[in-house]
Amino acid sequence: MKKPLRIDRAKAAAIFIDLQEEHRRDERYLVEGYDTVLGNAARLQSAARRSGIPVFHCAYIVDLADNLRPFHPIGPDGRSAFSDKDDPLTAICPEVAPLPSERLLVKNEASAFGKSPLIGELRDAGVEWLVVAGVWTEACVDATVKDAINLGLHVLLVKDGCGSGGLAMHQTGILNLANRLYGGAVVGTEAACALLEGDTVEAWRVEGSVPLRYTFENAAKLYGEL
């Protein structure tokens, strides 16, 4: 259900998850509509910076010398099958790259929280609302959002600031998160930018438990109504 929402900008931060070149240039890991995702992420970053809202960035980079999760996929060359530390395509795309003053968190797991100091830094800054954009929707975005909720943060999920390997993967990933986005909200980029600039907007907020009972036939419609 959509309700009016306003965010205290002094208690907000934004995080951009894994907006790396491999999702634009590696044929195995292309994100559908990635240029649109990057353009929306750039708009969100600009709005956050204008309002003095902290901006965090994540990059998924795998070093096989680290203790990785069991069954991590390895390519025929003996390197990580994705996001290998020696692959230049792990670089953040230049149009959404961190400013020198912004925090870049390197991770080798799905969630931006995991073993990182992120939650401590957010709490030290008094952050209550975390604006989330990035890729892939059903993987690293999903894990980050769920951890954020479990850690007591309100999540503003920017649906068109996220993307995945296919439209169905992305849309159902957003719907799955929306069904359990307790304390948070789902918006598009335009509404998110307005919130970051101090305005009140109509935002979709979950009521009850699992209200979006989507099917193959109606998933796109429900996504569009968020």
Rank of each mutant, 00 (worst) to 15 (best):
R49Q: 02
A59M: 02
R79G: 04
A65D: 15
R79E: 10
G52D: 08
L44S: 03
D84T: 07
A65I: 10
G75H: 04
F82N: 11
R43S: 08
P76H: 09
G52C: 09
R69S: 13
P54S: 03
C58V: 14
D84Q: 10
D66A: 14
G78L: 06
C58H: 14
A48H: 01
C58I: 15
Q45G: 05
V62N: 01
G78S: 07
S46V: 12
S80K: 07
I74Q: 03
L64K: 12
N67R: 15
R49N: 04
F56S: 01
D63G: 14
R69I: 13
I74A: 06
D66V: 10
F56A: 01
F71E: 13
R49Y: 05
A42V: 07
H57C: 07
L64C: 09
I53L: 01
I74T: 07
R79S: 07
I61W: 08
H72D: 06
A59W: 03
H57S: 07
R49F: 05
I61M: 12
G52R: 11
P73N: 04
D66G: 10
D63C: 13
D66S: 14
L64T: 12
I53D: 01
F56E: 02
L44P: 01
I61H: 06
H57N: 11
I61P: 05
A47C: 08
F56P: 00
R50A: 14
D66P: 06
S46P: 03
L44M: 11
F82L: 15
Y60W: 15
A81M: 14
R43A: 08
G52K: 11
L44W: 03
V62I: 09
